[in-house]
Structures are given as C-alpha cells and as structure tokens.
Design a protein around this nucleic acid. Structure first.
Lengths: 246, 246
DNA sequence: TAGTGGTCTAGACCACGAG
DNA sequence: TCGTGGTCTAGACCACTAC
C-alpha cells in the first residue's frame, strides 16, 4: 500500500510545489544563472515524488523562469519577460483591452443575416443553403475607437433565436452563456491592412491608415469551426506580442 | 527488478507510441469525434506504460489531432490544421522560405559598426560605450525580394572578428557555427508598417506599400538577449499564422 | 566515475460523466 | 455505481557533463 498525501486545496500538488520552488529562489536569493539543487534533493526538500517535482519544474520552464541543461542541472533564468498581450493566448477582446489597462466599450454597427461567401462556406463547413449572421462592432478603449470587428457565425448555431440585441460585451460570453458553446482555440492569419471604407465611415479613422488585420477562425473543443472573423486593430492601441520558440 | 524495454531507435518511446496511435486511427478508419480506446486499453494494445502512453497522447493533443474529455474519453479531432508558418515556432527566415516552397536567397545591403541606440542599450543590456554591428539584408524567394532584415548584435558577442563576408544564409547558423551561440527563443512585436526609404531604394518596392514588421529580440538558452531586429516582411509572400489557445 | 536531467515502468487514488 | 481521464508515488535505466 502506497500512502498518498491528503490535500485540502483544490489546486494540484505540482502548482503547490511550483510556488515552493519560487519561494526557495526568493528565500535563498538565487541570481540569474545560479544553480538550483538537483531534482533528487528537491524531492526530499519538498517531500514529493520526482514526477510531481518535474511537473512543477516544467511549468517554471514554460514560463522561462528556469532553464535546464541535461547532465548539468537546473538554473535560474533572467527576470521574467512581461508579455502584455501574447497573441498565442486567446482572450476575448474585452479581456485584452482590460489587460492593457483601458475601459472596454462597444458600439454596435449592425447585425445582419446574409448568404455566406464561398470562403465562409468552406471554412465554416456550411451547406450552401445555410444563412449566416454577421456582427459588426466597434470596440473602444477608454471611449476611443480601437478595433473594428466583423464576426460571422452560422445561423444554425444560434437556432431560431434572433440576436437583435446583445447585452454581452464579448461574443465569447454570448455564445457560452446563451448557447453553451465554448470557444477553445483560433487559427489566425496576421495581415497588415489599410482602413476600409466602413471603418472610415463608422470609426472616423483616416483613409490609408494602418491596421493589423486578424483573419481568424475560432473552434470549439471538438474542433468545430464556430466564428469566422475579420478583426481590425489599431496598432497605436494594441501591441501584439508573440513568444517564438525553436 | 523491473524489466525495461530495450530500444535500438534513437527516438523516444512516446514518439514511437504516437506513431502507433496514428496508425491505429488510420487502420480503423476513425472519423472526427470517434472515440479512441481508453488509456488502459491502449497501454495493453501497445504494451507500454500509462505514463508513456499519456505522453504520446499529449503530443497528439498538442497538434490538435485528438481531444480529451475527463470522464468520457479521448476523441479524434477534425482534419489537422495546416499551418504553413506558425509564428509561434522560431525558424530562421531561410527555413520559412523553404517551407513555403521557394528557393531562398540573400542580397547584402550593408554591415556596419555603429553606436547603439538607447533602445538597443536597454534591450541588449549594453554598456553605453560598447559598439554594435548591424547587418542589413534583403531576403529573396525565388529571386523576388520578400523581406528586408535589419539585425543588430553587440560587437562583443563577435569578439575581435570582423564580419566582412558572411557565407551563411542564416544569421542563426552564423552565430551557432562560428561562435557557438544558440538562439532559443524570441519575443516579437507585430506591427503593420509602410515601406521605408531604404526598402524603396534597395528592394525596389513602392512608396506606402504595406509590410508586416516584426520588432524582435532573440535570446539564447540562458536568456541572454543576442539579436535585436527589425524585420519587414512582404505580406504577399509571407502568410503568418498563429494558433491561439485559451 | 559520479552526478545530473531525461525517459520509462507499475500501481494507486481522485474527480468527472453517464447510466 | 462504473469507467474514464487527471494526478501522484516509488523506483529504475539511459544519456550527457564534468572531473
């Protein structure tokens, strides 16, 4: 019989051990490139198995707080990199604006029922007969227009309901709370673009001003394409970063 | 005494098991949302431990080939997403051009020794006295100019050597093979931009044409900043995609 | 040769989902 | 209640680094 440690907390043990390692670094004032104790020693220190310890180290490695060299040891990294909005994390735009420290707002432009384009049929896996609903919105940060969003979902996703008025800021929240659809990931193409006529008309931006266009398809957990979108972001407001790893 | 399986192959067992799972899906013609056997059954099928099997499944999950639901099982996802150039993977531009199916080339514009800008001093952690070397290149795809690269490294990184002629296509290869410096990751800001005067002059692009600017800092394994770069990409040639996950 | 991180095995309990 | 994936333990061999 193997004795298993009892836990009251809801978080996993590896999360707990991760915290303890961070505290260890703090307490012993480890500087960048200083060596941590070996995994064997750490298991004894924190009274845990090597598996759990290595999970905790994996989390820290992922966050680039430590790095490992086989045969040598585990070392403390340079100060963590601050990523304000890592593109690889899929947040709703509401969340992104909040993270930047602004107050998010929404101006509705239109909600239209349309026939899908060829590209929509292909990407959303539609029958050619099926209609789509397109939501056009201007997102504001501290009241200033910051993004122009054109999001399209298949009409069948919304059932028979008419999305005349939407009380939600975020389309993610709307789909999740009203229809139980949870968006899990998106595949986005990043394209530099000029302001469109609609943006000039509704956002009041100048002609030929620069925007970052994210042409994206959002999927649910089962990999079904749900939202097809062209989202234009003002590069003065949104600083998109990505961590690229080999 | 626990008996450990002997392996001739150099790849890990989990990689091997991953292949076997893919073959299983193929052989049994599993369709999207079809259920895989339970982890318990799969361990027996492939004669491996649950740990190794779960590592293999983790790899497949990461590639979005399968998805898991706790308490229910493991399921086959929709057709895999083709990512031509996932921005989250750090490849040299040479590699990216090759992946697109083009033949990469380089036109050298200049190699200059300069005093660093304030931003370079801060980002590259320089003493204000230290000089930097800036490499300006045009990268071509099938002979057509496709990107304009301005890469800067601290002079001390290159020691006393003069980088007059570089036989390498890739700056990564140059640093790795001549100086043993291995770039491991980069933090990139993605900015829409107009062509600069230099690009108009040397690349022959038109004024006010659109480019995607990656303003990035490349780090080595120990987290030291090595390359500071402004890389401009022609959006007609480079289609940058990112998978964004919650 | 000794010590480190990387991989693998075997077995156990926990938490979720469905009947 | 049962089967599933999620987490955890204990112990072993392998591959790399430094001496």
């Amino acid at each position: 019989m193997v004795e298993i440690k009892k836990r009251e907390s809801t978080v996993s043990l590896s999360q707990e051990v991760k915290k303890q390692i961070l505290e260890y670094i703090e307490r012993n004032d480890l500087q960048p490139n200083d060596k941590l104790p070996s995994e064997n020693q750490l298991t004894k220190l924190f009274k845990t198995s090597r598996y759990t310890l290595r999970e905790a180290l994996a989390l820290l490695k992922q966050e680039r707080i430590i790095y490992k060299i086989k045969g040598k040891g585990t070392f403390v990294n340079k100060k963590p990199i601050q990523i304000k909005s890592g593109l690889e994390y899929l947040d709703s735009i509401t969340e992104i604006i909040k993270k930047f420290g602004y107050v998010p707002g929404t101006k509705w432009v239109s909600i239209e029922e349309k026939s899908p384009t060829k590209d929509m049929i292909e990407k959303l896996n539609l029958k050619s007969k099926g209609k789509v609903i397109t939501f056009k919105r201007i997102r504001t940060a501290n009241g200033k227009p910051a993004a122009f969003l054109v999001d399209t979902v298949a009409k069948k996703v919304l059932g028979n309901r008419k999305p005349e008025i939407i009380i939600y800021e975020s389309l993610f929240d709307y789909l999740e709370k009203e229809f139980g659809i949870i968006i899990e990931y998106a595949v986005s193409e990043i394209i530099p673009a000029f302001s469109t006529d609609e943006m000039i008309k509704y956002m009041g931006v100048e002609k030929n001003s620069l925007f970052l266009l994210l042409y994206q398809l959002h999927y649910d957990r089962e990999g079904r394409p749900i939202i097809y979108s062209f989202d234009y972001f003002d590069p003065e407001v949104f600083k998109f970063k990505v961590i690229r790893s080999r």
